[in-house]
Simulated scan of single mutants.
Amino acid sequence: MTTQDMVLDVRDLVVEFPVGRGEKVHAVSGLDLELRAGETLGILGESGCGKSTAGRAIMQLPPPTSGSVGFDGHELVGLPARTLRRRRARMQLIMQDPISSLNPRRKVKDLVAEGLSIWGFDASLHDGKDKDTVVRELLEAVGLEPDVVWDRRPDELSGGQCQRVCIARALMMRPRVLICDEPVSSLDVSVQAQILNLLEETKERFSFSMVFIAHDVSVVKNISDRVMVLYLGKACEVVPSDGMHRTSVHPYTRMLLASIPGAETEAAADASSWVGASVKTTELPSPLNPPSGCRFRTRCPLATELCATEEPRLREIAPGHLVACHHVATGESGSALA
């Protein structure tokens, strides 16, 4: 992958939160992430694994404890506030709760146009159209009728309508990268499919790359080109979503696949043969004091003494497929554990 193909390059991202008495929460620990132009990278894991924290740290909300975040060839970490705000304008965030993320006092027309109001409106960049026309066209692009929602406030809209407003507001800045932090988890199932289809359609139309964060395996697998699986702040596997159920080899990824209701895939069946009786515990360890070595070892049925003393590193076992596990042999994706 060439430098021109990469819009986001994150290296050794660390996010820690002090909690007093010399202790700190190890939310994200040494995360590496690459995002190509036009790609959707899914970030998958249980609640508390650091998914949302990683997404916000990439946006510098707040800045990470350490590490590097390269966006469009520019380093974001350590930039002066004014320079950061300007460079970050083309990296937008869609939050989990669409209603609380919108100012309840402002009307839809003002919410969507907020970015233009802050950075200035240049008609020459919009084929000579005025601002209201641009806002109306964008509302139509996300499936809202401008005449209906124009003067409404967030409390007069449904959850799905509010999420469409959030998407329109983000797209107004013509982002290069859109970070979606569990954008459908608070919506009804019938609305979730509409929002997911909308994201895919607008991604194609407006030509941006996307980081899609969620804990729903099926949702992440279906919308993503590649999937990064996080566990307790660390990446344990990065796998192409096409055929993920066949090629995933990390025990944690297999457990996630086995958790899908009605799963009948080979990987899920293989995992379900030892999920339950063989798993040591279902409890997620505390991020205040993560386990030594492999952080998944306290729940992994394959754990050995090596897993407690040596931390596994992400390594490529097939083109585009990386895994951090001592018990996976280098070779073709989908091969048996070593």
Rank of each mutant, 00 (worst) to 15 (best):
H326K: 00
T330Y: 04
Q96F: 13
D147F: 06
I94L: 08
E156G: 06
L302P: 05
G334I: 09
I118C: 07
G45T: 09
F212I: 06
G159T: 08
E264M: 03
L8R: 07
A336P: 00
A235Y: 03
T304R: 14
A214Y: 11
S333P: 15
M255C: 07
V191L: 14
V142C: 03
P290H: 06
S224F: 07
P183I: 12
E156R: 14
H327K: 15
D9L: 03
P104Q: 13
I195H: 09
H327Y: 11
W274C: 04
V28T: 10
H74E: 15
E305W: 09
D270R: 11
L257P: 01
V165N: 04
N222Y: 13
R295E: 08
P154V: 01
H215F: 10
K24M: 13
V148P: 00
G67V: 10
L41S: 00
I317N: 02
E201H: 13
L232D: 05
E16Q: 14
P240S: 09
L144P: 00
E39L: 08
R297D: 05
T265D: 07
G115F: 03
G159Q: 03
E311P: 02
P312A: 10
M95P: 03
A267H: 00
N103P: 12
I99W: 13
E156T: 04
L171G: 03
R56N: 02
P154H: 00
A329D: 10
V14I: 15
G45E: 11
M210L: 10
C300I: 11
L288H: 05
L84F: 02
R205L: 07
Q4R: 07
